[in-house]
Design a protein around this nucleic acid. Structure first.
Length: 509
RNA sequence: GGUGACGUGGCCGAGUGGUUAGGCAAAGGUCUGCAAAACCUUGUACGGCGGUUCGAGUCCGCCCGUCACCUCCA
């Protein structure tokens, strides 16, 4: 394979740069994961999907990857040095809410939402990281890092906690441009503040609080770690003091990533991550996604079965919708777009079916698709290598699916093998053709049996309709068609017989 | 107030100096008992005003609008 150039926009330098891993051909990167105090929403996943696409693109050009993403299962303070008015953090608040009543304690809640995160992750076809560290499992190392920061004079202790001293790190602000303390000491700081803080910019490394729902013992007594320390500690634990790329949502840029840099570089004296990538927030129907606006969606709100209050959207349709805009621009998530994506997924699935049938038939003939499909794959890859230009890559993928569908049921074995190979490669790059990780066994077994019974029923009706049509009893044939429509089944008459498929559920209805 | 983005046809969304993005929706057509599906055909749009240029959606200035961050957030 000729040398491929992978370009991304580096938030640190504010310019698009060629990605050159410190070890050529081996990309080491860290993606900031969520706090597991609730179900992950589609905005969370837009950001995780960006990391997934970096991974897939790097792998597509033959790079090795070391990919680490965390789960934050410690409830952090709503501000760095202050709990909110009730003295609670986000996880404690979730536990106290109506939704939280079913959990025995805070650990139970964190475990539950971490598990739902993983199943949503699989549903949306995100590849697994090499490591998925949890904050609660790395507290000892966080304590060690805080102690070392104290030793090196980058931190100080007060009656309430341990703080990072921003004045000790002159580069503070190099990522976000927030260099001034102006405005930081007003407004929100009137709830609980630590009068011993030396600089309003200083942020908590450790909070002393023996009454918190999650506490650990430390040299500074019982308490819990600050929010920013977990990511820099875990990233350095798994990827080394210095690694290639760090990703997250645009909101992470400040303060979270700025603080990570301060901690990590103060400890190591080396650059932390060399490239920084931030995903912009998405909007929903033109507005900021917010519970109060009624446009707030978790993954399971959309892809969950209707029997469980979901909308029955194909998970890959959601995936496609969330990557249909380039990560660096705001994306307007709309239900029109989601419905269009569901159609595309259906086409990809049909193309895969046709290719599989063609391979099985293995009719003679020239390979009619090898060359054009290879070209379309190169187009898609080139688009992804250009700062993850997903819209262009998807356009090439759709064009390829069209070619496969056009040759359809008449393609020979050679053509079908090319089609199958191409679909696999496109799926490897974009993950929009088929799920790579099989869903959990129990789920599959249960729904497979139901699916089979349903298919038998449909095919029986189709036989009756075929008879009616043969007798030119169109009234009866149309009645059966209506009956199938009532079962959410649409049918396609073709010269070689009638095919059927489930109707795409309309997310708006 | 400070900082940074963005504004493209009915909708979503690429494109950064000169030649088609793509999709959805819509219209016409082929096929069909009728439909549906599939396939074919059809769109000259770039917030406003000025400027630079042989040529601007693309560069510059101003204005209008939307969004984000500035210690809750992906």
């Amino acid at each position: 394979m000729p040398e491929k150039i992978f370009r991304i926009y580096n938030s640190m330098t504010r310019s698009t740069e060629v990605v050159e891993p410190a070890q050529p051909g081996r990309l080491r990167f860290y993606a900031c994961g969520p706090t597991v105090y609730s179900y992950a929403h589609i905005g969370n996943f837009r950001s995780f999907l960006t990391a997934d696409l970096v991974l897939r693109t790097a792998q597509a050009i033959g790079w090795e990857t070391a990919y680490v993403t965390n789960i934050t299962d410690v409830g952090h303070l709503t501000e760095d040095d202050a709990a909110d008015a009730e003295g609670e953090d986000r996880m404690a608040k979730a536990l106290r809410s109506k939704e939280g009543e079913r959990f025995a304690n805070i650990w139970d809640l964190a475990r539950y939402y971490a598990n739902t995160l993983l199943s949503d992750w699989q549903a949306l076809n995100l590849r697994e990281p090499d490591a998925r560290p949890r904050a609660t499992e790395h507290v000892a190392r966080q304590i060690r890092d805080v102690a070392r920061l104290l030793e090196k004079g980058h931190a100080y202790e007060t009656a309430q906690g341990v703080y990072f001293s921003v004045a000790s790190f002159p580069d503070y602000g190099k990522l976000s441009g927030n260099v001034l303390a102006t405005g930081l000491d007003e407004g929100v700081r009137d709830v609980v503040q630590d009068p011993e803080k030396r600089d309003p910019r200083d942020f908590a490394l450790w909070k002393k609080d023996p009454d918190h729902l999650m506490v650990w013992h430390s040299p500074w007594g019982w308490g819990f770690p600050g929010w920013h320390i977990e990511c820099s500690t875990m990233a350095q634990a798994y990827l080394g003091e210095s690694f290639d790329l760090h990703t997250g949502g645009e909101d992470n840029k400040f303060p979270h990533h700025e603080c990570e840099i301060a901690q990590a570089e103060s400890l190591s004296g080396k650059p932390f991550a060399r490239y920084w990538l931030h995903t912009r927030f998405l909007q929903v129907e033109g507005e900021k996604m917010a519970k109060s606006a009624g446009n707030f969606f978790t993954v399971r709100d959309l892809v969950g079965p209707e029997s469980e209050g979901g909308r029955g959207i194909h998970p890959l349709a959601l995936r496609l919708a969330l990557i249909s805009g380039q990560y660096r621009k705001p994306l307007n998530f709309t239900f029109d777009q989601l419905l269009a994506c569901a159609r595309h997924i259906q086409r990809f699935e049909e193309a895969a079916d046709l290719a599989a049938q063609g391979v099985a038939r293995n009719d003679p003939g020239e390979d009619a698709l090898g060359e054009p499909l290879a070209r379309l794959y190169e187009q898609a890859l080139a688009a992804m290598l250009d700062d993850l230009n997903t819209p262009e890559a998807i356009a090439a993928a759709i064009e390829g699916a069209k070619r496969v569908l056009r040759d359809g049921r008449t393609m020979g074995g050679a053509t079908a093998r090319s089609a199958q190979n191409w679909l696999e490669k496109i799926n490897g790059l974009l993950g929009i053709v088929a799920q790579e990780t099989p869903r959990t066994a129990a789920k599959t077994a249960g729904s497979a049996a139901a699916e089979e019974a349903f298919a038998r029923e449909v095919e029986d009706l189709l036989r009756q309709r075929a008879e009616a049509r043969a007798q030119r009893d169109f009234q009866r044939a149309d009645a059966i068609r209506d009956q199938l429509a009532g079962m959410q089944v649409e049918i396609m008459d073709a010269p070689e017989g009638t095919r059927w498929r489930r109707q795409i559920s309309n997310p708006v209805s």
